[in-house]
Write a protein that binds this DNA or RNA. Structure first.
Length: 816
RNA sequence: GCCAGUAUGGUGAAAUUGGUAGACACGUCGGAUUCAAAAUCCGAUGCAGCGAUGCGUGCCGGUUCGAGUCCGGCUACUGGUACCA
């Protein structure tokens, strides 16, 4: 029969829909698998990154269904966020209408891909029901003191009177009106992720077996725990006077206490309160003030690139030597790390060295290498021996760190502290299309959380989005309300939540069955059964922020008493980006390839086979139109050659030892493919090699004519391929096996038994020949055979060594 | 800048633990079939060389009997960098 993807794909999509084939079962006795692909933002159309993500996830889900598990494989929509507002600005579309129309379209696209998602668990994070439960959690966090307000700096466009996301700032200017962007200090809501820094770091060890090493390393570095010395630097008398005695000293933090005698200057962040004081009180000249403002307004990446600074013409006193140290402002000193001030030791820190070189500041080495000289053109940052350091001279720098901190502590002039790079999570946004922060500003009571019975606090729909100001702030009536505490007139919070808040608990929400969905966010029993997620699949670009926030949120939910797990994702597969023309395919770059056209031309099975075959999932995938054809031809061949298969209801029993060489080889290839498929799902995730194995088996089957071998081969191969190309496999499986083979298949070890082995023979590590040896041949026999095979290369040469690697190779080492 | 990756034929890639580099495909070339073409099937295909053989996993160096794999130093590209999601 001809391969006609559009017919069979429609047939099976209808069949699955009619039979609700992919709903999880309520049977909690059964072993479960929770397979989750990261949910999409409904940008309008699926892109290839989605196709890749969901093809991988669907392969897991279908595989584990075949293995007999109760599988939860849900999908939903990460539907709040900036692009909906951008669309409103551009086309005048209402964010809600735009979003839900996109969802309707994309849902159909998912169906045409044949993805085995549960239907009853689907939701969008912009659904009021979702907002309702989320606002409840946020109130709990606020009441527990995990949510607080403080001032923070935001990109501000003075013309549009609006806050800009980093991506909306282009070369320091507003994306819409090109006005120069300034940093404005405003009150923001923050979640205290820093309270969980230690646990987030420690629990990474629990994820070691299930998560990629690189993600764990990135998270470790992001959390950035370091131990060091914190101490005060006191101003000298004239500087104090200059500052009108408003400040006596400031805090600095260093991880290199051993270099304390090498301090030659000290640097403050441009946002430091002393700097602000000096600007406000006109203690600096105009040029200096402009330079500092420029530092503040530069983005965080540029600030770390080209170092710049200005002297404040004030000085502090070195705590041990009493020497005078000039105070500078430096762009690379960050206000939200440590205390926003550093002691600078140019001799032993790269950044300090570069800065000192640029501004002609003095460099005093205090650590020298154990052997050899100090480098002349760079900082010496390795472990060495102290000198120029009074009583600490001669200590190793790592011992000196301890000794110096102890000295500071005993003199009561400093202390050991632990610092984290991890900053608290700013969760408020001055935007419309997000979940409103459920708080009320009352003149009497301050900030008051809304009563849970009034949730959700839903968005008004009659708004205008122009890109200027905050639409909720501008709405004529929405924000006016009564204080939940004192009932007086009050004003609603107009900030909405970061969309990372929604994606931090959506995986919990999926565990809610239909019966509980209206009543609560999730049910404890259901959650206990389904969590944690067995395989979480998503882009590597989420390695830090989303995954860290989701881990944090899970721990907070635990401490609020909602759940009792520590980590949400047992195993993580980070897929590589789908690239086109060398860069990420994304809605913001507009370099997407449309999957619909691909499906229309070749069918979903081809799209899925291609995308899984083209590269291992963790690697980047550069788009290549021409390779799709090959995937299609493979499926066509797979379909055509099924004409060799006999109809049956169970796997044929075959006497292996009666078979010809080609028949034996074909069976071996088939079971090798099966073996590999198990490895792929459990450990390796390399679907490309799994498909290659199936292709090899197909090629081997084609070398022989035994109908039973063909039939057994298809029985197994259809089972392996079903998670990848489900429509064709169900079709063939129905035709020949009444679908009886779409289940767990057993490996038959007899096919792997061999009586001879091919070994390579190399001379000095260079392959020169091959030999065939018996399974039980001893080392001497093998070496003798090998020497004969390479006699040409070794005659008249002195043999130094003979190495035999069993079942692999023989290496003869000769002299000269 | 900082953190994390990646680099193998004309192309996508394979080589699971240091042990036969290039499996499986794409493409190209040749053949069969066809009035012809498409589709399909069969065969060849790392580079250089008629060949023997030599060279070959981004670059430079090292460890080892043996390195795509381990170590040191570079280069290029990609992701993240806290308001893109």
């Amino acid at each position: 029969m001809e391969y006609n993807p559009s017919d069979i794909e429609k047939k099976w999509q209808d069949f699955w829909d009619k039979h609700s084939s992919f709903e999880p079962q309520e049977n909690f006795e059964k072993e479960k698998k929770y397979i989750l692909s990261m949910f999409p933002f409904p940008s309008g159309r699926l892109h290839m990154g989605h196709v890749r993500n969901y093809s991988i996830g669907d392969a897991f889900a279908r595989h584990y269904r075949q293995q007999g598990y109760n599988v939860l494989h849900p999908i939903g929509w990460d539907s709040f966020g900036m692009p909906a507002e951008n669309a409103a600005i551009k086309n005048g579309a209402h964010p809600k209408k735009w979003t839900y129309e996109n969802i309707d379209y994309m849902r159909k696209e998912l169906v045409t891909l044949g993805l085995s998602f549960s239907k009853e668990r689907e939701f969008a994070t912009s659904d009021e029901l979702y907002t309702k439960f989320e606002q409840g959690f946020i109130i709990d966090m606020f009441e527990k003191g995990l949510l607080y307000r403080k001032r923070g700096f935001l990109n501000w466009c003075p013309h549009d009177k609006t806050v800009l996301a980093n991506e909306q700032v282009i070369d320091g200017h507003c994306w819409r009106c090109d006005t120069e962007v300034v940093q404005k200090e405003m009150y923001q809501y923050y979640l205290k992720i820093s309270d969980y820094a230690d646990e987030l770091l420690e629990d990474l060890s629990k994820l070691q077996d299930g998560w990629p090493k690189q993600v764990i390393t990135m998270q470790e570095n992001w959390i950035g725990k370091s131990s060091g010395l914190e101490f005060d630097l006191f101003f000298d008398e004239s500087s104090k006077e200059k500052l009108s005695n408003a400040f006596e000293s400031f805090d600095v933090f260093t991880t290199r206490a051993d270099t304390i005698y090498g301090v030659t200057y000290t640097a403050l962040a441009p946002e430091h309160e002393i700097v602000s004081y000096m600007i406000e009180n006109r203690l600096l000249d105009d040029e200096t003030i402009l330079a500092i403002k420029a530092m503040k307004n530069a983005n965080s990446i540029d600030r770390q690139k080209e170092k710049s600074g200005v002297a404040l013409n004030i000085s502090v006193v070195h705590p041990l030597t009493g020497k005078s140290i000039p105070v500078w402002v430096a762009n690379f000193v960050l206000m939200d790390y440590g205390s926003g001030a550093v002691m600078a030791v140019p001799a032993h820190d790269e950044r300090d060295y570069e800065f000192a070189g640029k501004y002609g500041l003095s460099i005093t080495p205090v650590i020298k290498p154990f052997n050899g000289e100090l480098p002349e053109e760079s900082a010496f940052t390795e472990v060495g021996e102290l000198f120029n350091s009074e009583s600490f001279d001669g200590l190793r720098s790592d011992d000196a760190k301890r000794a110096v901190i102890e000295h500071f502590e005993s003199e009561n002039i400093g202390k050991r502290v632990i610092n984290f790079k991890l900053k608290d999570w700013g969760v408020s946004r001055q935007r419309y299309w997000g979940a409103p922060m459920p708080f009320v500003h009352c003149e009497n009571c301050g900030i008051v959380s809304e009563e849970k019975k009034n949730l959700p606090i839903a968005l008004p729909e009659d708004i205008e989005i122009t890109g200027e100001g905050n639409p909720l702030e501008a709405h004529p009536t929405w924000k006016y309300c009564k204080c939940p505490k004192c009932a007086r007139d009050a004003v609603r919070e107009t900030d909405t939540m970061d969309t990372f808040v929604q994606s931090s608990w959506y995986f919990l929400r999926y565990t809610a069955s239909k019966e509980v969905q209206q009543k609560m966010g999730f049910d404890a029993k259901e959650l206990e059964y389904w969590m944690g997620v067995d395989h979480y699949i998503g882009g590597i670009e989420h390695a830090i922020l989303h995954l860290l926030y989701a881990r944090f949120f899970t721990k907070v939910m635990r401490d609020l008493g909602y759940i009792n797990i520590d980590e949400p994702f047992d195993r993580l597969l980070t897929q590589g980006m789908v690239l086109k023309d060398g860069s990420k395919m994304s809605k913001s770059k507009g370099n997407t390839v449309d999957p619909d056209a691909l499906i229309q031309k070749y069918g979903a099975d081809t799209a899925r086979v291609f995308i899984l075959f083209a590269a291992p999932p963790t690697q980047e995938l550069e788009w290549n139109d021409s390779a799709v054809e090959g995937a299609f031809r493979f499926l066509k061949r797979f379909n055509d050659r099924s004409s060799n298969v006999l109809t049956c209801k169970s796997i044929p029993q075959i006497q292996h030892d009666t078979l010809s060489k080609e028949e034996k080889h074909a069976r071996k290839k088939v079971y090798e493919a099966l073996k590999r498929s198990f490895e792929v799902y459990e450990e390796r995730y390399t679907f490309n090699t799994m498909i290659a194995g199936v292709m090899e088996a197909m090629n081997a089957l084609n070398e022989q004519k035994n109908a039973d071998v063909w039939t057994e081969g298809y029985w197994i191969l259809l089972s392996i391929m079903e998670p990848i190309a489900p429509h064709l496999c169900w079709e063939l499986s129905e035709r020949y096996f009444t679908c009886n083979n779409l289940s767990r298949q057993e490996i038959k070890e007899e096919v792997f038994v061999v009586d001879s082995i091919d070994m390579a023979v190399s001379v000095n590590g260079k392959k020169r020949s091959e030999i065939q040896v018996g399974v039980d041949d001893d080392k001497e026999t093998i070496i003798a055979l090998a020497k004969e095979a390479v006699s040409k290369w070794i005659e008249d040469k002195e043999i130094v060594k003979e190495i035999v690697v069993p079942k692999k190779l023989v290496n003869i080492v000769i002299k000269g």
